[in-house]
Design a protein around this nucleic acid. Structure first.
Lengths: 232, 232
DNA sequence: GCGATTTTTTAGATGGCTCTAATTCATAAA
DNA sequence: TTTATGAATTAGAGCCATCTAAAAAATCGC
């Protein structure tokens, strides 16, 4: 009933709403989906007609409950697929995003249930992102923060390394920046760079990248792990 | 580059061409894809422009080599997916068709290779249909014939039970009409019905159904098997 | 072999998703 | 508080896959 394109808009709006709050502005949506602003406006009119977003002209949109449910379902599909590809088809966690981004729109309820079952209803995907429950309750806002936000000296655990292009993820994986990894914030250089360290050495990260890696403060019992980078 | 719709046309034309020979008429395509004739004509113009079909106006179309390769690829996807769903996600062979029909257009090369490998490069799918090779050579025309074509008294082995709606396949599975099954043609009634038998009893099949079940003459060493219907 | 019937194509329209160009609205700066 | 700037919307267009109605071509029956 809903086109894949509409599903992509809803997913995009959901994520922008989480990150920047509502209402979500036209220009943000346009940028995130790589379309022009008029395209977004006309799509918002359609989504509004269908009751999936609430719109205030010239201000922006917010997902309705129904729109949010659709978005959460697509995200559940995406993250289950990523987990499935890694666990059952030997994909590397760095290369699952594109495949999941397509398939998320095309798998049936049945397929979703079967892979969830086969995976044992995992709580997070290979990037560390939480997988929404089958009930499609929007997951609680998370307590992680971008790596760039922690002050020098903090000990943190990487929670998520966001879906982005494969080369970047591979580089980060190679450098040991993976979900679950224990890091120390070593330095924040005024040229827009963060330096972190772990058992295997130091790593410099441009601010833009450090913004998209989310972490939480290391608990007393978080032992620096010795997880190794996957051999490829 | 190619839309899913175009892929569906190519797949449909391929199958019609196998069944009835080339050129394939507009009306046949329209019926098999459940669209109107003008829709087919306009799609054929587009496929011709792209070099995927050769067209003779008012006569019909034939796939070019390139068009055939695309069709074979989609069919390979379809059948690998069906096999994967049955072998690795516990689907019944009667319920995989719809899922595969959607996903066949959306999986990557990578995904195709990985499921093929995981399955051990099977030669046939759960319906008994041959899975084209990764080289996408069009498979040799097969030597099976519709069940309806065998004379009374013949001993045959079911080769394929074609993709069609789930209820019908479930009924046939329940009745023991599954790929690999040894059958004897018992009677061909003038009311358009064929009667076949196997170890567990007799089964009447309307001609329309007997047309879509393909079989080959039982070889001397084909022992009537005792395969059981899957318990559900 | 010619008219009647069937099939195919042409013509013209619609809805979906996108664009560029022009206009309207909101906001930040003076 | 007025204006300049930037953001959003409207206007108008194009392409895709589809439709119905009308015209043209092929085929079938005598």
């Amino acid at each position: 009933m809903l086109s894949d394109v509409m599903e992509d808009y809803l997913k995009g709006i959901y994520e922008l709403q989480r990150e920047y709050g509502a209402p979500v502005k036209t220009s943000l949506i346009a940028e995130s989906l790589d379309v022009t602003a008029p395209t977004v406006t006309s799509m918002m009119e359609k989504l509004e007609e269908r009751g999936l977003v609430a719109r205030e002209k010239y201000k922006g949109v917010e997902l309705t409950e129904e729109g949010e449910t659709v978005a959460v379902e697509i995200i559940r599909h995406h993250r289950l697929l990523e987990a499935f590809l890694v666990d059952h088809l030997d994909y590397e966690w760095t290369e699952v995003h594109e495949e999941a981004d397509v398939l998320e729109h095309h798998i049936s309820e049945e397929f979703e249930q079967r892979i969830a079952e086969r995976l044992g209803d995992p709580a997070v995907d290979p990037h560390g992102d939480p997988i929404p429950e089958a009930t499609l309750e929007p997951p609680a806002a998370d307590e992680t923060r971008p790596l760039a936000d922690f002050p020098v000296g903090d000990h943190v655990v990487v929670a998520r390394v966001r879906d982005r292009n494969e080369d970047e993820l591979e580089y980060l994986a190679e450098a040991g920046i993976v979900p679950g990894r224990h890091l120390v914030i070593e330095e924040k250089a005024p040229i827009g760079m963060v330096t972190v360290s772990h058992e295997e050495g130091q790593q410099n990260l441009p601010d833009g990248v450090a913004e998209t890696i989310r972490a939480r403060v290391a608990e007393p019992d978080d032992r620096p792990d010795t997880r190794h980078v996957t051999e490829s």
